[in-house]
Simulated assay, not measured.
Amino acid sequence: MKIKTLIVDDEPHAVEIIQKYISDFSQVELIGTCNNAVHAFQLLQDQSVDLIFLDIKMPGLLGTDLVRSLKSPPKVIFTTAYQDYALDGFDLNAVDYLLKPIPFDRFLKAMDKVFDLFKLQQQKVDVPVLVNEQKVEDYLYLRIDRKRVKINVNDIYWMESLKDYIKITLKDRVLISKQKIGVLEELLPEDKFIRIHRSFMVSMDKIESYHSYAIEILGKELPIGRNYKAECKKRLAIGV
């Protein structure tokens, strides 16, 4: 199955670059390009699209507002020259956020995420099994690759939501299970974990540093979403 893809950007040169990059992937089918978000909205009413490369700052309607207007938006990779919109991109559960000019190696990383997501969707994964439906303190079982895998709660560094899946980062490995991050948020001990974003939940004792917009664990910065900033400030004493 090919990934039906749309490019939305008001800069012809940016469209040309993304088209060129896409042409290297036989799994991707470019169904069209739009030079504004309103045109893209109209096209999305009539055509099925799996992935959008979406500029943010465009005349008439911002790319972020386009995503908010869609009931079931496709997967989105934001492409923009403005880093200031990064938090909006993460809040909208974008697959990735690429800053222009986009180098090919960075584009490859974004596509790697896309392919992982589509592989997960195509897999027939059984319903995940938790230890029970009450708070867990020491460990839980998640169904991963058709096996029940025991995960020590103290080994978890952070969890990232991938739509209907969750990616769990441990010190020495990464696990992916078909599970909602909200379910684990209810099960895991509140004194050990904190939700910092609609897509991220982290272990409190694994935080290496933080500021008002991000938390760092294992050298990786994870964004703090607007709706979670007050709770993070309260629990981590983050300054304004």
Results as ranks from 00 to 15, higher is better:
Glu186Arg: 13
Ile176Gln: 08
Arg146Met: 09
Ile196Trp: 02
Ile181Leu: 04
Ser212Tyr: 15
Lys2Arg: 12
Lys119Tyr: 06
Ile217His: 03
Ala81Phe: 02
Val49Lys: 11
Phe193Ala: 11
Ala214His: 15
Glu231Leu: 11
Gln47Trp: 14
Lys109Ser: 02
Leu54Ser: 02
Glu216Ser: 08
Leu51Asn: 03
Ile207Ser: 07
Lys75Leu: 15
Tyr139Trp: 10
Asn93Gln: 14
Gln179Glu: 13
Pro103Lys: 07
Lys171Thr: 11
Asp50Val: 05
Gly225Tyr: 06
Leu6Arg: 00
Pro101His: 08
Leu184Ser: 03
Pro101Ala: 13
Asp105Ser: 12
Phe53Tyr: 04
Gln47Cys: 08
Ile7Leu: 00
Gly182Ala: 08
Ile168Leu: 04
Met204Phe: 13
Arg173Leu: 13
Thr64Glu: 04
Phe107Met: 10
Glu133Cys: 05
Leu236Trp: 05
Ile217Pro: 00
Leu117Gln: 12
Lys124Ala: 11
Pro59Phe: 01
Val153Asn: 07
Val8Ser: 03
Glu29Met: 15
Leu54Phe: 00
Lys192Pro: 01
Tyr97Asp: 03
Asp46Val: 07
Asn93Lys: 05
Tyr228Val: 09
Glu208Leu: 01
Ser212Arg: 14
Asn35His: 15
Tyr97Ser: 00
Asn227Thr: 09
Asp145Phe: 05
Val38Tyr: 11
Asp145Ile: 07
Glu221His: 04
Asp84Arg: 14
Met58Pro: 05
Leu236Gly: 04
Asn35Phe: 14
Pro12Trp: 05
Leu218Gln: 02
Val49Glu: 05
Thr169Phe: 08
Glu160Val: 10
Tyr141Leu: 14
Glu221Arg: 00
Ser26His: 13
Asp91Val: 11
Asn154Gln: 14
Leu170Ala: 00
Leu44Tyr: 06
Val49Leu: 00
Ala237Ser: 14
Thr5Ser: 12
Ala81Pro: 07
Asp24Ser: 13
Phe118Ser: 07
Asp88Val: 01
Gln83Tyr: 13
Asp65Cys: 04
Asp88Thr: 03
Glu185Leu: 09
Val114Arg: 13
Lys75Ser: 15
Ile77Leu: 10
Gln83Pro: 12
Ile3Cys: 05
Phe78Leu: 08
Gly219Gln: 03
Phe104Ile: 07
Asp205Thr: 09
Lys4Pro: 07
Lys234Ile: 09
Gln179Gly: 07
Arg146Gly: 07
Phe25Leu: 00
Lys147Asn: 10
Ile156Thr: 02
Pro128Trp: 15
His39Gln: 15
Leu99Ser: 06
Leu43Trp: 05
Asp164Cys: 12
Asp138Leu: 14
Asp112His: 08
Ser161Glu: 06
Gln45Lys: 04
Lys220Phe: 13
Ile56Thr: 02
Thr80Val: 03
Glu16Asp: 13
Ser26Arg: 15
Gln179Ile: 13
Asp46Cys: 12
Ile238Pro: 02
His211Arg: 13
Lys234Pro: 02
Arg143Ile: 05
Gln19Ser: 12
Tyr157Val: 00
Val8Ala: 00
Tyr82Cys: 05
Ile102Tyr: 01
Val153Glu: 14
Phe78Ile: 14
Ile22Lys: 06
Glu137Lys: 15
Glu221Leu: 12
Arg68Glu: 03
Leu87Met: 09
Leu30Asp: 02
Asp24Tyr: 11
Ile144Cys: 05
Lys233Ala: 12
Met204Cys: 04
Asp91Glu: 09
Leu142Arg: 00
Asp65Asn: 04
Val114Leu: 03
Gly182Phe: 12
Gln42Leu: 07
Val131Tyr: 15
Asp84Pro: 15
Ser72His: 10
Tyr139Pro: 06
Ile77Val: 13
Met1Asn: 10
